[in-house]
Amino acid sequence: MTDDVMHRLEALGVALPSPPRPLGAYRAVVEAGSMLHVSMQGPLLDGRFAYTGLLGRDLSVEEGREAAKLSVLNALGQIHAHLGSFDRIRQIVRLEGQVACADDFFSHPLVLDGASELLAAAFAERAGHARSVVGVRNLPGNVPIAITLTAELYPS
């Protein structure tokens, strides 16, 4: 089987970043039965936070969308490091986002669309997912968004 997700990412001009190390005492990826759970990922690039601050105060919706794309790319990097390819992914099941924002910011779904749209482009028919997004006061490292991802696996 060929890794069609990697081919689609390459066609989009997107490269997987090196997966960030966990920032605490937890595992970045846990495989449990047919489910793969990726711990919260933020917009880290080369070991540094690429985006910081609150949406609606320090960052625009478009900057939030870019931070969401980078966050989901980090999640995909974690999956690829764990599995060696994306061939075992049957479906992206759930995407959860936490958006650090000003009190009067209400465009959370538009920010998380940056991640959802990248998943749709990369996984095509396997990308349909449930999702939730909430606004929070702050996130570790002052990042504007953090996402978690759950995928269903084909048997190995």
Rank of each mutant, 00 (worst) to 15 (best):
M1P: 02
M1Y: 08
M1Q: 10
V5T: 15
V5P: 02
V5C: 04
M6E: 09
M6K: 13
H7L: 15
H7C: 06
R8L: 06
E10Q: 14
A11K: 13
A11C: 04
A11S: 15
L12D: 07
L12Q: 14
G13M: 12
G13N: 10
V14K: 12
L16M: 04
P19G: 04
P20G: 14
R21N: 09
L23K: 11
G24N: 10
A25G: 00
A25C: 03
R27Y: 09
A28V: 08
V30E: 15
E31C: 07
A32T: 15
S34Q: 12
L36N: 01
H37Y: 14
S39M: 12
S39K: 04
L45P: 00
G47N: 06
F49E: 10
Y51M: 02
Y51E: 02
Y51W: 14
T52C: 07
T52Q: 13
G53S: 05
L54H: 08
L55K: 05
R57C: 08
S60V: 09
S60G: 05
V61K: 01
V61E: 07
E63R: 12
G64N: 03
G64T: 02
A67I: 09
A67M: 05
K69L: 02
S71N: 02
V72E: 03
L73Q: 06
L73V: 08
N74S: 07
N74M: 10
A75R: 09
L76A: 03
L76P: 00
G77D: 06
G77E: 07
I79C: 06
H80D: 06
H80E: 10
H80P: 00
H80K: 14
F86G: 03
D87W: 11
D87A: 15
R88C: 04
R90I: 09
V93K: 11
R94G: 00
L95H: 03
E96L: 11
G97W: 01
A100S: 14
A100K: 08
A100E: 07
A102F: 13
A102Q: 07
A102C: 09
D104R: 13
F106Q: 05
F106H: 13
H108A: 11
P109G: 08
P109Q: 10
P109F: 04
L112P: 07
D113H: 00
G114T: 01
G114H: 00
A115D: 01
E117N: 10
E117R: 09
L118I: 13
L119T: 06
A120S: 11
F123P: 11
F123K: 05
E125P: 00
E125Q: 12
G128T: 14
H129Y: 06
R131Q: 09
S132D: 09
S132Y: 03
V133Q: 01
V133M: 01
V134A: 07
G135T: 14
G135F: 06
V136W: 04
R137G: 01
N138C: 12
P140T: 12
P140S: 07
G141K: 07
I145R: 01
A146L: 13
A146T: 14
A146D: 02
I147T: 04
T148H: 02
T148D: 04
L149C: 02
T150A: 10
A151S: 08
A151W: 04
A151P: 06
A151T: 05
E152A: 13
L153H: 04
Y154G: 00
Y154M: 12
P155W: 10
